[in-house]
């Protein structure tokens, strides 16, 4: 892609390897995310999607290779420094804190750069979070917890958001709301790397899709060519 050569990608991952103890999970992952894009990682369970997200965020015990954010190498940085550089994670298990109220959960991640959403905008996007501001974080419904997990990283000014399976286990109406949210934050200039099992949902929000298998990226499909590649994708995902 000649146009990608001209600019430094927002996130450039090359030859990424990651381990949990003795088990070698990622075997040389390569992909790029350009500024303003929504890019998904698709793949079966155990393909290494979540480990890729955690490696970018500095949350795996051992990783090697290149993870450049805006041209800056981050593979040797501690996770708090990676966050300070401008990357934020919405983890698969959502990570809502039981000992914190909804508002405390929302306000927990420190603002690392100007340009994040203010609380009023967040409450307009997610009215439920305003209504239940004083509830215990984990007393929210699954959908509300997911909203909270996304909302709290929109506040920080981080411009690259890693969303790990935000639709997992949620009712269709909530999934649609999350889809609207992702399109909205894309319009506001955020860049999103999204892990998804559900490629029908992914197709409604993403620009490009990377397919992972056995700890590697094996294919890249632009969203516009998704329908032409349906058979291939069914093979990859085993659906």
């Amino acid at each position: 892609m000649p146009d990608a050569m001209l600019e430094v990608p927002m996130l450039e991952v090359r030859g990424l390897n990651a381990w949990y103890g003795e088990s070698h999970i990622l075997h040389g992952v390569d992909f790029d995310v350009r500024e303003g894009e929504v890019v998904t990682l698709l793949g079966r369970n155990g393909a290494g999607k979540t480990t890729t997200m955690k490696s970018i965020m500095g949350l795996v015990p051992r990783r090697e290779g290149k993870i450049a954010f805006k041209g800056q190498e981050t593979v040797n940085l501690r996770s708090d420094m990676i966050a300070r550089a401008g990357i934020a994670l919405c983890p698969e298990e959502r990570g809502i804190f039981a000992s914190l109220s909804v508002t405390e959960n929302l306000m927990l991640p420190p603002v690392i750069a100007p340009g994040g959403l203010d609380v009023a905008t967040i409450h307009a996007l997610f009215p439920n979070l305003k209504e239940r501001a004083n509830s215990q974080g984990t007393k929210l419904s699954g959908g509300e917890q997911q909203m909270l997990a996304i909302a709290r990283i929109l506040r920080t000014g981080a411009k690259l958001l890693l969303l790990d399976e935000p639709t997992e286990g949620l009712a269709p109406v909530i999934v649609q709301q999350i889809g609207r949210t992702i399109r909205e934050i894309k319009q506001r200039g955020y860049t999103v790397l999204l892990v998804e099992q559900n490629f029908r949902f992914a197709a409604t929000v993403a620009d490009r899709h990377y397919v992972m298998e056995h700890g590697r990226v094996v294919d890249m499909i632009p969203n516009s060519e998704l329908s032409a590649n349906m058979d291939k994708l069914h093979d990859y995902l085993g659906v």
Partner: peptide, 9 residues
């Protein structure tokens, strides 16, 4: 680990 991944030392 998650709190640290939010940028807190």
């Amino acid at each position: 680990p998650l709190v640290q991944a939010f940028g807190i030392n």
